[in-house]
């Protein structure tokens, strides 16, 4: 199998991300200038738009919600169960050392920090959650700062006082941007957990094998 084929899943999504980001930048730029013209204000060039708070807030508000989605899914599947779902553990909880291949159960190919024991293994055991949490928080902070600047630009164009950053955090614009993304992510994750009980996609790691019973639960039921 070629190197390209072995990494094709991540490559495909990287390309899709780049194409979608370029499309968003172009569409956002046109939309921004349409609004400027409608208010008798000056249009800006694409380069200026790419450095604008308007573009930054649109990008980061989606980033934070996507990372939150996967963060919660990773964490929720530790503590909550969904009978029949391939995304749910069969019993829940953090698992034994034997199940997690830790301590005396490590293998020659186990990651170095999994073999190390102590603080390093403890950190590594939560590393996926910690990194996803850090990216989520950074994106959310970025959204709050960019959203604050973009909102103040609109307010001053409409002859209103700009807000302070804490004032923006308490403003409906910040929460409308945040929650409109969160609700869709929660719906998508919840419906995926339930639909995967009864529906199948042959060949997908996200689905149980086509012939697997509906009440079969857990990652081991995955195809």
């Amino acid at each position: 199998m070629s190197r390209l084929r072995r990494h094709s899943l991540s490559i495909v999504f990287l390309v899709l991300f780049a194409v979608a980001l370029v499309g968003q930048a172009w569409a956002g730029w046109v939309q921004f200038n349409d609004q400027q013209v409608a208010q008798d204000l000056a249009e800006i060039g694409l380069g200026r738009y790419l450095r604008s708070a308007d573009f930054a807030v649109d990008v980061t508000e989606n980033w934070q919600s996507e990372y939150l989605q996967f963060l919660l899914y990773v964490l929720a599947t530790v503590f909550f169960l969904q009978r029949g779902s391939p995304e749910s553990g069969a019993h829940g909880g953090l698992g034994t050392d034997e199940e997690q291949k830790l301590g005396e159960f490590t293998e020659p190919g186990s990651p170095a920090w999994a073999k190390a024991g102590g603080v390093r293994t403890a950190i590594y055991s939560w590393s996926l959650t910690l990194v996803m949490l850090a990216i989520f928080l950074a994106s959310w902070l970025g959204q709050s700062i960019a959203g604050w600047a973009a909102f103040n630009e609109t307010r001053m164009q409409q002859l209103q006082d700009p807000l302070t950053w804490p004032g923006y955090l308490a403003n409906a614009d910040f929460w409308a941007r945040t929650l409109q993304n969160w609700q869709s992510e929660f719906l998508a994750v919840g419906s995926m957990a339930v639909l995967a009980i009864y529906l199948r996609q042959r060949g997908s790691a996200e689905s149980k094998p086509v012939g697997e019973p509906h009440d079969s639960t857990g990652a081991s039921a995955g195809g």
């Binding site: 400027q36 708070a53 630009e153 006082d161 700009p162």
Partner: peptide, 9 residues
């Protein structure tokens, strides 16, 4: 003075 993007007060 407050400046944000293409607007100022």
């Amino acid at each position: 003075v407050a400046v944000s993007g293409t607007a100022a007060q």
